[in-house]
Design a protein around this nucleic acid. Structure first.
Length: 456
DNA sequence: TGAAATGTTGGGGCG
DNA sequence: ACGCCCCAACATTTC
């Protein structure tokens, strides 16, 4: 009898309890099922590109034994059960709504197969949201108590299990190919990422080590400067589980703790918090967490949205960031906040439009983090800010890209603007081949404050 | 993980 | 030499 190993969001061999335990005492059949049916929405182009390359790498690690299937997960698994001798299924414990529903359906369908056991392992989170609860049985909606009390004062995250000592593959007739999944963008938009990113499990670990060695001890302050290397850029690797958060967590625990190490850990905590929120409040994926903001009337100007998407707002730091996203499939965390604030507050465009664009373009696009973070910037989320937080793109540029290194990297044609004017080129009178601001900052800021304040 | 207004301080110019 | 004013720089408060 064989075990069926089902890969989903954790495309790795190291510290993956699903394959570690699944391969222990029996021959294995490994599969990845691209479920394009039971999904809230399809993966974005950038995500698909990353997925394609991750799967390629995983398949190599599995000596080309990965079965690539597409369609309804449960149906595909039952087809495998009907074809091969399978008595055990090993799966990731689901935490996202789609995955939970897929597993629910699978469990029901498996009721017809009495002798098949299904085994679940938490491969995605440091803390299972079901075991994080307040004494009064309500849910955390504020990050700090969630992380400090809910997470840090509960159990220690699982110690990495390591890699399986041997993989014994059951003979299968594998006539599937990764190309059956059609993950690569036919317009070749993603092609340019090839020379920017090395997509493999091995590289994820290398990147973690490089980060720890060279950058981590400047993380707390350095992480704010988009031209610097003080952020880890691990997010796309984490998103598809090329590295486990448990592995990262326990590597960090080997270090001398300081404010930088702790701050980086708290960023992993924000990811946990996002998953926790989406687990208990899945409706926030397309609804304001705070219902009162449903009364807010957005402007949602299509034309301005297009200009924002394509980095033609006339605000250098914003345009540079949108260009970074388009060119690299990534955007620095600081500039994510700046561009999101501008879209929502200054242009008065619904956060859901921005969320969707990020979902399409980010290699690290993560359902939970993306939704929770957009709602954080919008102020519609769990974070009950008592004032309307609006980022001033000029001040943010002057503060965090003082010498213009980031801005000029993505908008080189601004190199002739004297530095004091770089983040407000409209005040520099020479004729520039650069758009005027599509909206006046101060006027639109004042408008937003009024709009957002009357909601309260 | 904000911005802008307001308050405080201390050095230098200058009568 | 001294006191006064101005203002930049920094800190605090307010929205």
């Amino acid at each position: 009898m064989n075990s069926l190993i089902v890969f989903k969001n954790n495309l790795r061999i190291d510290d993956n309890p699903v394959i570690f335990y699944g391969s222990k005492n029996s021959k294995i059949i490994t599969t990845y099922i691209y479920d394009n049916i039971n999904v809230y929405r399809e993966l974005g182009s950038a995500s698909k590109y990353w997925l394609h390359n991750s799967l390629k790498n995983l398949n190599e690690s599995l000596n080309n034994n990965l079965l690539f299937l597409m369609g309804d997960t449960s149906k595909k698994i039952i087809e495998l059960i009907n074809t091969y001798n399978i008595n055990n299924i090993f799966c990731e414990k689901p935490f996202l709504e789609d995955d939970i529903n897929i597993i629910k359906k699978l469990k029901i369908d498996l009721l017809f197969f009495k002798d098949i056991k299904i085994n679940f392992f938490n491969t995605s989170l440091l803390w299972d949201p079901r075991y994080i609860s307040k004494k009064d049985k309500t849910y955390y909606t504020v990050f700090t108590p969630f992380f400090k009390k809910g997470c840090l004062e509960s159990t220690i995250p699982d110690i990495p299990v390591g890699s399986p000592s041997k993989l014994d593959f059951a003979p299968v007739n594998n006539n599937t190919s990764i190309d059956d999944l059609n993950l690569l963008d036919k317009y070749n938009w993603t092609h340019k990422f090839d020379k920017l990113w090395t997509i493999s499990e091995k590289h994820a670990l290398k990147q973690l080590n490089t980060f720890i060695e060279n950058f981590l001890y400047n993380y707390k302050d350095g992480r704010n400067f988009p031209a610097s290397n003080f952020n880890s850029k691990l997010s796309p690797y984490i998103k598809f589980g090329l590295i486990s958060v448990n592995r990262i967590w326990h590597e960090l625990n080997k270090l001398v703790p300081d404010k930088n190490v702790n701050h980086f850990k708290s960023e992993l905590g924000w990811r946990e918090f996002s998953y926790y929120l989406l687990y208990y409040f899945p409706e926030m994926k397309n609804n304001n967490f705070q219902k009162k903001f449903d009364n807010l009337t957005w402007e949602n100007c299509d034309h301005k949205f297009e200009l924002w998407k394509h980095g033609k707002t006339g605000y250098p730091i914003i345009d540079a960031a949108m260009k970074e996203l388009w060119d690299t499939g990534y955007m620095h965390n600081r500039t994510r906040m700046i561009v999101a604030s501008f879209l929502i507050k200054n242009l008065l465009i619904d956060w859901r439009f921005g969320e969707k664009w990020f979902w399409d373009c980010l290699l690290d696009a993560d359902h939970a983090s993306n939704i929770a973070s957009w709602q954080w910037v919008a102020g519609t989320g769990t974070d009950a800010a008592t004032y309307v937080r609006i980022f001033n793109p000029t001040l943010q540029g002057e503060k965090f890209d003082q010498n213009g290194e980031y801005t000029l990297k993505y908008i080189p044609k601004l190199k002739n603007v004297p530095l004091p004017f770089l983040h407000k080129p409209w005040e520099f009178d020479k004729k520039l081949n650069y758009p005027d601001p599509i909206i006046d900052y101060t006027t639109s800021k004042d408008r937003a404050i009024v709009k957002f304040l009357i909601i309260n």
